[in-house]
Design a protein around this nucleic acid. Sequence first.
RNA 1: GCGCGGUUAGCUCAGUGGUAGAGCAUCACCUUGACACGGUGGGGGUCACAGGUUCAAUCCCUGUAUCGCGCACCA
Length: 880
Amino acid sequence: MPEIPKAYEPQLVEEKWGQYWQEHQCFVADPRSSKPPYSIVIPPPNVTGVLTLGHVLNNTIQDILARLARMKGFEVLWLPGTDHAGIATQAVVERSLREEGLMKHREDLGREKFLEKVWAWKEKHGGIIIQQLKKLGASCDWTRERFTMDPEYSRCVQRVFVELYNKGLIYRGKRMVNWDPAARTALSDEEVEMVEEQGKLWHFKYPLIGEDGFVVVATTRPETMLGDEAVAVHPQDPRYAALRGKQVMLPIVNKPIPVIVDELVDPKFGTGCVKVTPAHDPADYEMAQRHHLPLTVVIGPGGAMTAAAGAGFEGMDRMRARKAVVEQLETMGLVPKIDPHVHRVGYSERTRVPIEPYLSEQWFLRYPAAAQAVSAVETGQIRFHPERWSKTYLHWMANIRDWCISRQLWWGHRVPVWNKDGETRCQIESPGEGWQQDSDVLDTWFSSWLWPFATMGWPEHTATLERFYPTADLVTGPDIIFFWVARMIMAGFEFMGREPFRNVYFTGIIRDKQGRKMSKSLRNSPDPLDLIASYGADALRFGVMRSAPLGQDVLYDEQQVELGRNFCNKLWNACRFRQLQAGETQSEIDPRLLSIDDRWILLRLDAAIRDMDATLADYKFSDAAATLHGFFWSEYCDWYVEAAKAVLQGTNAARRANTLAVIDFVLSHTVRMFHPFLPFITEELWQGMGYAKDMPAEQGGRTIMFAPWPKPLDDDFKTHYGLFDETVELIAARQKLVTEIRNIRAQYKIPANKKLHLVYQAAEDIDAEEKRVIELLAGAEPIAHRASYTPAKGEPVIHPGVGGKLFVPLAGLVDAQAEKARLARELQKVEAEIQKVEAKLANPNFSGKAPPEVLQEHRQRLADWQAQRARLQASLADLE
RNA sequence: GCGCGGUUAGCUCAGUGGUAGAGCAUCACCUUGACACGGUGGGGGUCACAGGUUCAAUCCCUGUAUCGCGCACCA
């Protein structure tokens, strides 16, 4: 670091080391390495995606884990890649093609032409997010980047399909599925989001046939009445017992339909009479099957009414048809009541339009290895963090239903099924002339669920697969626990014979300050790239990690990123301070030359290292970040460095050099511990400060990436350097003394730039160096020692731990009244404390049952408070 | 309806069966030779509410309120 700017400037530094790591292949995993393996697969972002704060959180955690593992001596593979994201990508490309005027609907281009366009689009715009992840500092092995539509990957997907088909787990069936009318495809249950809405409950009168009167049905979907095939009542409902076997006339359509009886009807809801639309409601479909009712499809795949809905409605959008039906019925006087009604409507997670229950032929999968997937989590073979998510997982697994895996899209993996003359074959390659491939593609997740091993070369027994499967940790959001996590576990057992990962860390969801989810439409999602540009990637990482406790949602606030930037600057300047010190350097610390401050900071460093290990082992990244932040800022910078200046500004060259050695020791440890959180600045400091030179050169020269993770100081070290707990007490006592002096300074409004004149009254003077430290910390002139001293009336006095009295002469500043008031306030506080402790100790239950050490601690506390009370009273008496 | 999570300083959040913490914000003082992206000191909390267990509860248990999330075929 030849030129050291006062403020840390991240942009150039981050650029420089990002390139350095790439050039030196620091992220590349070697399956032939002798080190133990550690692996993570990235949750592949959509190939069309751009970096969001959610990605920042997720990938920073993965990067911390990966970098930590490297420093701990593991051979690390963090495998990156992107997902083809069927519907999302197809929708994006369709939109852009429409905007360019190249087509109105994809049918205009045809399947092949359209796919060419998608691939072209992918080549051009895809993978932006990969570049963005690099900016964030993600240490993925980019040489192994995968895409779920790579040719080899596609082969895995089809192979898996064929295998499951041959096992009889994949089948074709006509079912009522969730249909997305905008994308014109089926969706899985998991892709439907239930949204609570204020809707209406319309009551319709259906005239009875052959007698006067009506049956009143209640519905939230008037437009479906055009496809009604029955009216249903509950078998035990006495109100409608007489209706059994009767028929009603379906208005508008003018079709007689029967009244049926079915347990599924809830007599308490609405009128207790349900209109039954077999083709457009799952429950109605179920009833229709029991009662052999016909299926009349009145809503087509695009969400428009069909010919069967009647000439007046054909081609009309379902929402318009709703209004039209209600209007017609109203004119006919058949709408006695419209109630407001809160209900839940299924929306497509992709296109945000209401889902249509739709009867169609689809491919379904009966999940394999479900029992193993359940027991793996139950037994802890796979652990969830936080653990509570395992409950959600197990609940879903217990109610697991077959998975609709076919999609009526073009962008995706083709279903490897071939038809010819009514014959069907399931195989990867075409059976030959005249065979037509099934036109459906597979659900994106049907490729994602193979991610942990398909990316490693499966089904070949590659070195990578042998070495790095199963992976160690998976980091993902709880929102895809069913979509992805559960399915990966099942695929892992089915195809690899074992679990795909051992730990799953579920991040929280990043929300805005108001607690709302980040979303494009709300425009409340800041662009992480902007944040990196103005604060630096390290600052962004640190800010996000500080505020992301295990499993809790994160309310994002830019101030957190500022905190990160400020911290980087602090770290920078602390190192800058070290660089500015002239003089000889030595790498060995001489125990004979250590001050109590030196010993203290080494002990605190030891505590910080232990704390880091404990919190990181529990995936408590925000705690780890807070520990380091607190140690470095509040202990090292605020106390140690300030005290060390007493030696550094002194004349003893040997002591100076030794203190610098302690500083180097602490900094080199601290910088390493920060590296997983702040990769760029720590690399700059590691190499710039020269700490790298003592380390063996590895791949990538002497990068901090492979520097050893700090170990707690062992007993031999502590004995050698005389690190005992008494030191901590000594320093605590001095900190208390200094704080009291500073307090008095503030009380009397003595400007911070004015030095205090202190008088120490005791038989013996304080140790010279200790005195110098106190002077520095308190901002005082050399402390005068007096065997006897008569203070001015009301002169503030402090009682240092070593005995004697420390006076703060105020040269005319003393206001006896003010001082009296101050002392009285203090006294009041102390009295209150004494009362509390005394009351506790006086309670025989407490003294009888509390453990001895607690009792002892209370007695000590009481004695301390009493001593302070005596001092305060004495000072007050002096003022009388 | 069932399940899960939250409720602690103005804000965002840690935390522990035995003297309530951090960051930010706020107030006062300070540009002192690492850092104003800084230093020092201060103010601010009946730890949502009600019971219970305990010598002792912010922490454990039960219930209530409230906010959020997930699951569920009430049309």
